[in-house]
């Protein structure tokens, strides 16, 4: 079991500062396969910076990250994504001026049609794969409960549906590790319930999740481990029960 933990994702003492302001300080963590790790902490604690470093959008000053046996520190964001890490963004990114269905289609990995020469010399292969992907995309949208919006522009969805779509995009990418940045913030209780149930079903599908969330109830409900961060450092780590009774966290959050 310990061996398995080390094999999936190991983050070893990451450091990152922006113009002298420390965003990550000796931050280490591990996540086991099929685990759900919750990251909590006040604004500016370095949670999103951690996501950005992990996914290659920001380079860290020092430290190492190992994902499924491969060192990913310093690799480009698109390369890391192709290795099986998908993420959502706190400021909710989607391709808003194309259809919902096309957003999903865009996110599938290893598409032969994205190679330009295939478009001209292996067009039947491209079409066949595109047809398969369309079926998969519709199935994913049905699973998420927004299949009726498949033909709408992503921009025309409600805020909650857009958040749902951004998670569905990660499902399309079939990533092994999903990093979800505030997946339920600002949503109504029905939508929160829906998104939490999708997230909690991910481990059964062999996926692991790290999520950032300020909604304590939600994160305690679905995480199997929680890390509390502040000023770039890990303050404490444990099961939701352990963390819930940590006086430092009660002080910061749960009072």
């Amino acid at each position: 079991m310990r061996e398995n933990m080390a094999d999936f994702l190991t983050v070893d003492s990451l450091n990152k500062s922006f113009d002298g302001i420390v965003a990550l300080e000796n931050f280490s963590c591990k996540i086991k396969k099929k685990g759900i790790l919750g990251l909590i902490g006040p604004n500016g604690a370095g949670k999103s910076t951690f996501f950005n470093v992990l996914t290659g959008f920001i380079t860290c000053d020092s430290g190492k990250t190992n994902f499924m046996g491969t060192e990913i520190t310093g690799k480009s964001a698109d390369k890391i994504a192709r290795m099986g890490i998908s993420r959502t963004f706190q400021d909710l990114r989607l391709i808003r001026q194309i259809r919902v269905l096309d957003n999903i289609l865009l996110c599938f990995r290893d598409q032969p049609g994205e190679k330009l020469r295939n478009t001209f010399i292996k067009n039947s292969l491209v079409r066949k794969k595109e047809k398969e992907n369309k079926k998969k995309a519709v199935a994913l949208l049905e699973y998420a409960g927004i299949a009726d919006k498949a033909g709408s522009l992503a921009n025309d969805l409600s805020y909650g549906q857009q958040k749902l779509l951004s998670i569905t995009c990660c499902l399309a990418a079939d990533a092994d590790l999903l990093l979800l940045d505030e997946p339920v913030s600002g949503l109504n209780p029905v939508m929160i319930e829906k998104i939490l149930s999708i997230i909690s079903e991910l481990p059964e599908k062999g996926k692991s999740v790290i999520l950032i969330e300020h909604n304590m109830e939600a994160i305690m409900q679905i995480s199997d481990r929680i890390i509390f961060m502040d000023t770039g450092k890990k303050i404490s780590e444990g099961t939701p029960q352990e963390v819930r009774s940590d006086p430092r966290i009660i002080e910061a959050y749960l009072d």
């Binding site: 959008f57 964001a77 698109d78 994504a81 998908s86 990114r93 391709i95 001026q97 865009l106 990418a173």
Partner: peptide, 13 residues
């Protein structure tokens, strides 16, 4: 529309 999004899904911009 959004290079960052495309990159986060593995596209080499």
């Amino acid at each position: 529309e959004d290079e960052v999004f495309a990159q986060s899904f593995g596209k080499n911009i």
